[in-house]
Design a binder for these strands. Structure first.
Lengths: 186, 186
DNA sequence: TCTTGACCATACGGTAGCGTATTGACATCT
DNA sequence: AGATGTCAATACGCTACCGTATGGTCAAGA
């Protein structure tokens, strides 16, 4: 018998989940093994059963985020279909659903960790190049498409990092105006 | 005689300067008193002469950045004069002069420190409202002006945080296209 | 010269967190 | 019932810092 998940026993995922939560709320520097253990009401003896060391947990957290969050929006947009103009609006609207807490924390993390920075760079690249292709489909030149794609993406990242807290209704109106400005062909 | 700066003696400013450097390169978590002392070839006995504790240094560093960096660009734009359209282009071009290393580090810092976050919020607010007034002068509605101001600003912050490393020539071309896109009326 | 104050060294005690080693509890398989 | 494997508790030693206490040095003013 190789049953799993009888609860009351912890697995790697429990530590990762908690790690992500703490990461979002207090930053990487606060995801430390002894404090985490306390939150789980166990001692670190448990932790070192599941992980080789703290580094391994951090990598697992990162990996978890990447595999969960990266391509999900792109897929949703593609499934919904439509022309490039529609897809772009769809993309804008989906992107602002997330509050970006975790992503913000990871960006802050990346500022002092080149390995994380490298990974984020790839994520940014994938998202940017997808957005760029949509602008290309609208008939913009490569340079124009790139600049516009960056403007969209920066607008999103900017909201995360600058932290403009506003309600969803206004955000939606804002995003529609952005769509108008960036897709207008004069 | 109350001479100063005979060199070979340190003052608060020496610690602040080094602090800013380390902050930009390795992040807040790396600006610690003993390592800093080592870089200055002194012991921490010196540090605690000039500062009450580490917290006080961090505040001094922050204060130093705010008073140096915040309004300088706005002033330069105003001094140069011209109409709103000219000022906006001028603003764009000046903003991309800075590589944003320090600002990036401070944004990462702010992610885990609400006091820093509050201060940054004020800085952002001042910069955004200035930019917004320029768009208002161009005849945009308050909402349109705000959205456009944010797009400019986010584009700048986005370059800092996403870290798109590109040469000055391309940056300049990019910024001019942004100016075109965002100021176009009809 | 003598004093004073600015600056720095040395030495100390304290804390938080890392990682290891060892043992214990409990469930499952044989 | 034993043996085994999984997870957790306990108890270490270690390092990197923080902040304090105290004394030393050296230049400038009286």
């Amino acid at each position: 018998m190789v049953k799993k998940k009888e609860s009351s026993k912890l697995g790697q995922q429990d530590w990762i989940d908690l790690g992500l939560k703490v990461l979002a709320e207090k930053g990487v520097e606060s995801v430390r093994v002894e404090p985490l253990a306390q939150l789980l009401n166990v001692t670190k003896g448990s932790f070192y059963w599941h992980f080789k060391n703290r580094e391994e947990l951090l990598e697992a957290i990162l990996q978890d985020w990447v595999s969960c969050e990266t391509d999900s929006i792109i897929e949703q947009v593609e499934v919904a279909g439509g022309d490039a103009l529609t897809k772009l609006l769809h993309l804008f609207e989906l992107a602002i659903q997330d509050d970006g807490q975790v992503e913000h924390a990871i960006r802050a993390w990346a500022a002092n960790d080149s390995k994380v920075a490298l990974l984020l760079e790839q994520v940014d690249q994938r998202r940017l190049s997808y957005t760029k292709t949509l602008f290309l489909e609208l008939g913009f030149t490569p340079f124009e498409a790139m600049v516009r794609a960056r403007m969209v993406y920066y607008a999103l990242v900017g909201e995360f990092t600058v932290g403009t807290r506003t309600n969803q209704a206004e955000r939606l109106a804002e995003v529609r105006l952005q769509h108008l400005i960036l897709t207008r062909r004069d």
